[in-house]
Simulated scan of single mutants.
Amino acid sequence: MARRWQLALGVNLLLGIPAVVPIWLLWYMASNWPLAELGLTTGEPTENDGILPWLLFAGPVIALFGLLWWLANRPLRRGTTLSPARYWALSVLATLSPTLVLIVIS
C-alpha cells in the first residue's frame, strides 16, 4: 500500500473526464467576466446578463466536482509515499490532462 501513486494517477485520470465540464465553465465564466473587463479577452457580445446567472448555474457544478475530487483524493493521499506537494501536483495534472488533450486536438 505504500506505493499506490499509480492508483491515484488512474483515479485522477478518470476524474479528469467529467472535469472537462467544470473546467470549461470556469474558463467561459472567466473569459466573459473578469478577463473581458480587464481587456485580456473579447467577451461574447450577447453575454450581458452579469455574473449572477453563471454563479447560480456553474457554482453548484464546480463545487460538487471539487468536493468529489477532494473526497476521492483524501484517502488516496494517505496511502502513498509521495510528499504532499508531489501528490497534489500529480493529482491536479492528471485531472487536467483530458482537458489539455481536448485543447491540443481541437
Rank of each mutant, 00 (worst) to 15 (best):
G39D: 02
R74L: 13
R77V: 03
S91F: 06
L64V: 13
S31F: 15
Y87E: 07
L68C: 10
A30E: 03
F65S: 04
P18C: 10
P75W: 02
L15Y: 05
A36K: 01
P18I: 09
P53R: 02
R3C: 05
P34G: 11
V104M: 11
T42L: 11
N48F: 08
P75F: 02
L9C: 02
L25Y: 02
P18S: 07
A36P: 01
L40D: 10
E47N: 15
I23P: 02
L55Q: 12
T95Y: 00
W69V: 07
F65I: 10
W88N: 11
W5A: 15
L82A: 10
E47Y: 14
A58N: 06
E47I: 11
P22E: 04
A89L: 15
Q6V: 10
P84K: 12
L25G: 04
T42K: 11
N73H: 05
L67A: 10
A2F: 08
L93C: 09
L56D: 07
A58V: 08
R78F: 00
E44P: 00
L102Y: 01
G79M: 11
P53C: 12
A30N: 06
A58G: 07
L102H: 02
I51K: 00
I105Q: 04
W70Y: 15
W5T: 12
P22S: 08
V61F: 09
A8C: 03
L93P: 03
M1S: 14
L56I: 11
L56E: 04
R78Q: 13
